[in-house]
Computed example of a mutant assay.
Amino acid sequence: MWTVVDSPVGPLRLVEHNGAITAIEFSPFADRDGRPRGQQQDDHPVLVEGARQLAAYFDRDLKEFDLPLAPAGSDFQKRVWDQLLGVGWGETASYGEIAHRLGMTNAASRAVGLANGRNPIPIVIPCHRVIGADGTLTGYAGGLERKQLLLSLEVDGLF
């Protein structure tokens, strides 16, 4: 099941399967990527709660999400995404720092970056909080403009 909600970073499609959020997608939506989405169901309880929490996040009233999540990925990707959940509101971490949290060296930074870029549940799993070692914004599946907006929302409340 899925629904679409408006947000300051454009329309977001929330996808649910078996009682958990499996994806949050930025517009324009890619329907031919092979991911199962099912039918639109705006009143599904998990999707309603996801929409409510996202609205509260964008209003700066929610800093930690509490949603059932089921991102599909490799074991390594899931380990990276678990580490992203530890990067709190208003904080950032470099790809190398995430690699170190996984018990790896800086040499794994590229693999961390690739896993970060494949995160199917952005915002809730905060891949936007991962930046380059020199503090610069680096790639973001939703585009660097969205990444900057999300970081600005958290750091200084601008939007």
Results as ranks from 00 to 15, higher is better:
Met1Leu: 09
Val5Pro: 06
Asp6Val: 05
Pro8Leu: 11
Pro11Thr: 07
Leu12Cys: 10
Arg13Ser: 11
Leu14Trp: 08
His17Val: 13
Asn18Glu: 15
Glu25Val: 10
Glu25Gly: 08
Phe26Arg: 03
Ser27Pro: 03
Pro28Cys: 13
Ala30Phe: 09
Arg32Leu: 12
Arg32Ser: 14
Asp33Trp: 12
Pro36Cys: 07
Asp43Val: 03
Pro45Thr: 09
Val48Gly: 05
Ala51Met: 12
Arg52Gly: 00
Leu54Gln: 03
Ala55Pro: 00
Ala56Lys: 10
Tyr57Arg: 01
Phe58His: 02
Asp59Leu: 08
Arg60His: 10
Leu62Thr: 06
Glu64Cys: 02
Leu69Ser: 02
Asp75Arg: 07
Phe76Met: 03
Gln77Glu: 15
Lys78Asp: 07
Lys78Glu: 03
Trp81Asp: 04
Asp82Arg: 09
Asp82Thr: 12
Leu85Glu: 05
Val87Leu: 05
Gly88Tyr: 02
Trp89Thr: 07
Thr92Met: 04
Ala93Asn: 04
Ala93Met: 08
Ser94Phe: 01
Ser94Cys: 02
Tyr95Ser: 00
Tyr95Arg: 04
Tyr95Gly: 01
Ile98Asn: 01
Ala99Glu: 00
Met104His: 04
Asn106Ser: 07
Asn106Cys: 00
Ala107Ile: 00
Ala108Leu: 02
Ala108Pro: 02
Val112Glu: 01
Val112Trp: 01
Gly113Leu: 03
Gly113Glu: 04
Gly113Thr: 01
Ala115Val: 08
Gly117Gln: 14
Arg118Gly: 08
Arg118Glu: 15
Arg118Thr: 10
Asn119Thr: 15
Asn119Gly: 11
Pro120Phe: 07
Ile121Thr: 05
Pro122Met: 08
Ile123Ala: 01
Val124Thr: 03
Val124Phe: 04
His128Arg: 07
Arg129Asn: 07
Val130Leu: 15
Gly135Asn: 06
Thr136Lys: 14
Gly139Arg: 12
Tyr140Cys: 14
Ala141Met: 14
Gly142Gln: 06
Gly142Ile: 08
Gly143Lys: 11
Gly143Ile: 10
Leu144Ile: 14
Lys147Pro: 07
Leu149Met: 15
Leu150Glu: 04
Ser152Asn: 15
Ser152Tyr: 10
Glu154Asn: 10
